[in-house]
Design a protein around this nucleic acid. Sequence first.
DNA 1: CAGCGTCTGTGACAATGTCACCAAACCCAG
DNA 2: CTGGGTTTGGTGACATTGTCACAGACGCTG
Lengths: 192, 192
Amino acid sequence: MQVPQGTVLFRPEDACQGFVVVHSGTIKVTLTAENGREIVLYRVRPGEVCLQTFGCLVNHTTYSAEGVAETDCALEVVPAAEFERLVASDSAFRSRLFGAVAARFADLERLVEDVALSSVAERLARALLRLAGTSAAVDATHEALASEIGSAREVVSRQLGAFARDGLIEVTRGHIALTGRARLEALAHQAD
Amino acid sequence: MQVPQGTVLFRPEDACQGFVVVHSGTIKVTLTAENGREIVLYRVRPGEVCLQTFGCLVNHTTYSAEGVAETDCALEVVPAAEFERLVASDSAFRSRLFGAVAARFADLERLVEDVALSSVAERLARALLRLAGTSAAVDATHEALASEIGSAREVVSRQLGAFARDGLIEVTRGHIALTGRARLEALAHQAD
DNA sequence: CAGCGTCTGTGACAATGTCACCAAACCCAG
DNA sequence: CTGGGTTTGGTGACATTGTCACAGACGCTG
């Protein structure tokens, strides 16, 4: 099924309708505090697992985070019974599922490490590099970057300002060019 | 195999010897930053899964956290090949494994939410209630509590001091009595 | 009983997060 | 094309949290 960008796929307390498989596009899964602060837990791209959906299906619980189509998506929702049948009888499916689940947990572990044990500069450097991929720039608002690292928009504005003054980046509205990529990488890997 | 309290079972970069099954006792799994700060990711008790081990086995990677026997433990290490066989052919094992993995994911998600989006008072209240269980007191150092919530010992000392002044707890060295349990619970569930 | 190690408390300061406010840029409708 | 509304960004003041250094209390061992 086709889902346009911005569609909310699930919210906390929602019942789970089936296992979500992403064929194209990206789903962003976030947690939001009462004060409006939010953090991106992970993204689901083709070949990856939505752990929320997995957890709901396996333990018969409701969603505890929010999932939004970050881009236009092509999704498939596998009914719970079909999911269980695939897990039981399709060893290739199960292997991929296990691998994807394990990879996702590694991501979450790094997120915990980031948030609990790293400075804002390190976290922001990592987020910029991750969002850029092979590109030399990131298109994101300060608010979006704040959600990526679990901080506040003002804190991101300040830190981007410091990065800009130090020559690591060049900022325009909604766009950040990574002019000092090597230094960002050095910062990003400081705690490794 | 019997493992005495304090035994380091695995460290970052260690190769994975097999799937660890806990028959009795508790394993504590932590991440440590370069500056010595640490955070407890989760504990593994009988019936629970060590996600580190799971992830290493499934994706053929090395450990990325440290696992220590928090108590004397009775453990079993299932060789990787046997683990894969069990996953493939033992549906009861697989069900339990999936359920445990999903429950662990929910724990990690709450940890991220805690660390990124909650105040130190809330986090400490939750940790005290969790460590106490049904008991009316917690035996832990300030340093241990700091690891539980991913903060610093001094911050925990201050916050415990504030809790004590407000009548929520009574503190002695290495021991904390939860005298105002209802108020701790109110604080712990503030963001829910 | 003394000494050493561990644990705790606190002050000063740095880093980070919050709140309020304001300005600039962008977009859309008329 | 212009104006108004919305979105985005910057900044100051302040609160909370984390770091560093230091000192004192407690517990254990010889």
